[in-house]
Design a protein around this nucleic acid. Sequence first.
RNA 1: GCGGGUGUAGCUCAGUUGGUUAGAGCGCCAGGUUGUGGUCCUGGAUGUCGCCGGUUCGAACCCGGUCACUCGCCCCA
Length: 412
Amino acid sequence: MSSLQPVRGTHDLLPEDSRRHRRVEELAFEIAGRYGFGEISTPIFEFTEVFSRTLGETSDVVTKEMYSFTDRSGDGLTLRPEGTAGVARAFISGGLAQQLPLKLFYRGPMFRHERPQKGRLRQFHQIGVELLGVEGPQADIEVMALAAHILDALGLGGAATLELNSLGDGDSREAYRLALVAYLSGQRDRLSKDSLERLERNPLRVLDSKDEGDKAVVAEAPLLTDYLNDASRTFFQEVLDGLAALGVAHRVNPRLVRGLDYYCHTAFEFTTTLLGAQGTILAGGRYDGLIAQMGGPATPGIGWAAGIERLSMLLAESPAALRPLAVIPMNRATDALCLCQRLRRAGFTADLGYSGNLKKRLARANRVNARAAIILGDEEWDREAVAVRDLDSGIQEEVLLASLEERLAKFR
RNA sequence: GCGGGUGUAGCUCAGUUGGUUAGAGCGCCAGGUUGUGGUCCUGGAUGUCGCCGGUUCGAACCCGGUCACUCGCCCCA
């Protein structure tokens, strides 16, 4: 084993892995396009404030998990840990408030300095969407329908469950927070050590605890749903009705929460039981307060993100590579090179082995799953022809160079 | 940051209570005559047994440390 290690939590994507990733990205992008989403690419690093300013109270915890550094100019920069903040920054700095509503799709690497786990790396990749400038529940419905559509198209519809909840508007949320803190404070002796800390720092997170004792406490806790005011309740009901009308399967989970202040109304996750503790494969929510909090014009927004690694682990099989035509010279190396290029320019996938006799080259053709072999034998060449061997059937025939592309069409 | 498990060939793994030359399957390479693959047969190469130190006459095996991977906790923007 070599001593040359990749950085902890980073992975190389070899061609087969890349095909899986691209399958996820491209399918998602294509379907998002049908919903009117256009692609945005923001830089993979930003000034650290772009991320830290959005994080509020929990920031010192989160800061420890960011890849932050000072560059040669002395600027504090951070590799993006997620996609929304960069999009929001682009929205503000690019003056995109003129173009609302905006529907944006993004994909690319994200970075978090965490302990790696299954489907959880330090450099990982996400796809995501943001829909900015729509206050009504239609946005929530559309964004979740899109997510369900993509998972379905990837063949993961059966493996994923949509759970959602409403955090309500600011008033509802605050009312609930007070009620929850009051309740939990009376249960201190039953809470785990972790949850006692959560109670101080981020009480809603107690609802997410995996501790059995905490779960028992949480089971009797007041429900967020009961603290929604009329406007929030109506909003949530419209979201649920819309999902039902579209036939998007879902389940209300009254304990599903988001930690940060700018979240409101809809919070949702698609989860699976197939990935151990890392069961969330796509998550999102409404963040009407975010852009204002970052210093932009108050703009409602909703979006989601999904980890490509987790999605691609769930794909039943990797997409196959293209099947090339294997061009095999007996002697005429230069002619083979030219012929290979001619085929590529004509739109074929063509592979030219680099060395070896006919036997070796055919073996290589097999290895790359070639559809057919084009063999340049001297005798055929003198007749301005080549031998074309169908590698699936084994049938071989002589084809005149003049009609080569036409005769190879069936192998395309 | 914390805890459990695991590091032996390119890959998946075996390796008896410590005992001398470290194994299998797959893959790879070569051959089974000249210009025909997948199947089959034969042969071959490959390891600092993760790394460092300790115990021992002797360590892949025991002990300590370290690094990495992995599963989980914390966190999940």
